[in-house]
Design a protein around this nucleic acid. Sequence first.
DNA 1: AACGTTACCAACCGCAGAGCA
DNA 2: TTGCTCTGCGGTTGGTAACGT
Length: 215
Amino acid sequence: MGRSPCCEKAHTNKGAWTKEEDQRLVAYIKAHGEGCWRSLPKAAGLLRCGKSCRLRWINYLRPDLKRGNFTQEEDELIIKLHQILGNKWSLIAGRLPGRTDNEIKNYWNTHIKRKLIARGIDPRTHQPASAGAVAPAPGAAASAAAPSSHRQHGDDKAAAVVRSSGCSSRDSSGDDDSTSGSSVPHQHQLVVGGIDLNLSLSPPTSQPSSPAAAN
DNA sequence: AACGTTACCAACCGCAGAGCA
DNA sequence: TTGCTCTGCGGTTGGTAACGT
């Protein structure tokens, strides 16, 4: 079968973004808002695929991004959240305003993993390295222990934790901000290690509501 | 000063799920 | 109800900078 490629690869640029491309993208989104990524590149006059534009915007150009070093607080929060959610970077990012899933994922892989290992903690199970090897973490944490089985079944448990709250990872973005009428509040109050993990799934950047938010 | 290695960040790829006709 | 399209997510890779020998 084969799905049609997300874009005409032959006519799209790849690799690092230029300043001009950034400017075009930002200008377009400021004027028209996000959405319809597939048609955006053409409309904005960019030789990029929609996916690429979305990623660039979300991970780099969004005006509300924090950028810069992670604080000790963020650090600990990421660890706690990862313990509960596993590699659900988008959900974790949702609890860290101004941070993107990609940024957190990178940070986890390059800093936190190492840090935990140095502390003698298995970064997947969040258990003492020796114990973790034999005793997988209970509950949701188990998902983190699951060998990255490509999010097929491995993280089902962590996902279940989230779903049980009436949300799916999709919801976070879907954000049917339905707040409006939805009888099921998208919240899940958790307190771990003294940190109140209110797992309400709000988009990382609650709506670029007003493009003007930029600057 | 040159070369090799390691660490970090940005971007790409493929898949799954939601929404719609 | 089914199939198709689009979006979003997570994993992985490539490029570059920093550091060490």
